[in-house]
Amino acid sequence: MRETGQFTFGATLDMETLAGIEGGTFQGTVTYRRGYDLGEKAGLGVLQQVQEVFGRGQTWRLTQFWYQQEFEGSGIDLKFGRLTMGEDFAAFSCEFMNLTFCGSQPGNIVGDYWFNWPVSQWAARLRVEAENDLYAQAGVFEVNPKNLENDFTIGHFKGATGVLLPLEVGWTPALGANRLPGTYKVGGWYNTADGDDVFLDVNREPQPVTGAPPLSRSGRYGGYVMVQQQVTGRAEEARTISGLTLFLNLTQADRKTSRIDNQVSAGLFYTGLLQARPEDVIGFAVGRTNVNARAERDFPGPRQQAEKPGAEYAAELYYGFHVAEWLILQPNVQYIVNPGGFDHNKDIVVFGLKANLVL
């Protein structure tokens, strides 16, 4: 048994009220992560963490420090400062405990340069809202490994290796007579920083055989598709009041430099299944995290006898009890097949309890 947690302290400032700047917003957030990793203690050997709130260092961080300016009547807004990638690009909720179903999916498979919450980066994002609930947005994010260090700082000004350039287009309709909200996204990214080839050495020979330094690739890239749609029940102002919501997330990274090259997950949320508890939410999801076969090819000698990793499969079911406006208790069970992508590893069952307090 292991527990871990996160404390978040934040403030949102309306700059029109404070300084007369119409459409301006400032956001500052500090996080503190603490606790212990069940995966390490129990030797689970999983590709995706079973405690989504653990990771990226048990330390204090400046997670958000940005200014956003909306230009009235134009549909354009600009955000800049210290941002996390998943705030705007491939954004997804984090209700589940298994990381397969939590947060911005690209960060789950190329987390060495796509940094999700609570790690922030110097960045800017431009978004344009069009008619018919369409939008497009693009960003520029610094790629700097120093951001992963466990020191509290407003931001590093040296050590960048390149820039990450995400692009996303989407549709956010309210469908049917009940105006049920949905989100449909297609996006991609390009990282200008070099990356090591997962198979070839500098002479374009199998690197695990030769032992020579890996071939350096210029740039890394990938893409994603995300769909979420409420299909039954009621909604108000794009917020689910009751009913069933379905989702599907798919991410593919380049196979030249990514050891984990794709992830897919699908699931549902159901709000108010029990009439006596209208605010409670049930969540269920299944997912697959794939190890790049190019990184695990057959090689001469004893390595041929070793099992090569393939894909890890995960499922999770939770029930969220809204005990009070400030407290949600969420027991859950996870089932993981082929931990680490290895067929010989025994399946894993994890029982968890997630508590969310908002003061």
Rank of each mutant, 00 (worst) to 15 (best):
E3W: 12
T4Y: 06
G5T: 14
Q6M: 14
F9V: 12
A11P: 03
A11L: 11
L13R: 09
M15V: 09
E16K: 13
T17E: 15
I21L: 15
T25Q: 15
F26A: 15
F26Q: 11
Q27K: 11
T29Q: 15
T29I: 15
V30E: 09
T31P: 01
R34A: 13
G39E: 14
E40F: 07
A42E: 15
V46Q: 09
L47V: 08
Q48M: 13
V50N: 11
V53I: 15
G55Y: 05
T59C: 08
T59F: 08
R61A: 04
T63M: 11
Q64I: 05
F65A: 15
Y67K: 04
E70T: 11
E72S: 14
E72F: 04
E72P: 13
S74H: 01
I76Y: 04
K79V: 11
F80G: 14
F80R: 04
G81Y: 09
M85F: 12
D88M: 01
E95M: 12
F96R: 03
G103M: 02
S104M: 03
G107C: 10
G107K: 02
G111C: 06
G111F: 05
G111W: 03
Y113G: 04
N116R: 05
N116Q: 10
W117T: 12
V119A: 01
V119M: 04
Q121D: 05
A124H: 00
E129T: 00
E129P: 00
A130G: 14
D133A: 13
D133V: 04
V143G: 03
P145H: 03
K146Y: 12
N147S: 04
E149M: 09
N150S: 14
I154G: 14
G155I: 04
T161M: 06
V169G: 12
T172H: 08
P173I: 05
L175R: 07
G187R: 00
G187V: 01
G188H: 04
N191D: 15
D194H: 09
D196H: 05
D197K: 01
V198E: 02
D201P: 02
N203S: 08
P208M: 02
T210C: 00
A212S: 11
S216E: 14
Y221G: 06
V225F: 09
V225W: 04
M226F: 11
Q228V: 08
A235R: 05
A235K: 04
S242E: 12
G243L: 08
L244R: 05
L244E: 10
R255I: 00
T257K: 00
T257H: 02
S258H: 01
V264Y: 10
Y270A: 07
Q275L: 04
E279P: 00
V281I: 14
R288L: 08
V291Q: 03
A293R: 02
G301E: 08
Q305I: 07
A306W: 06
A314N: 10
L317Y: 11
Y318S: 14
G320I: 03
G320K: 09
A324P: 03
E325V: 03
W326N: 13
W326M: 07
L327I: 11
L329R: 05
Q330K: 13
V333T: 15
V333N: 11
Y335C: 06
G341M: 02
D343Y: 07
D343Q: 12
N345W: 07
D347L: 06
I348M: 12
G352V: 13
G352Y: 13
L353Q: 09
L353N: 08
K354A: 06
V358T: 09
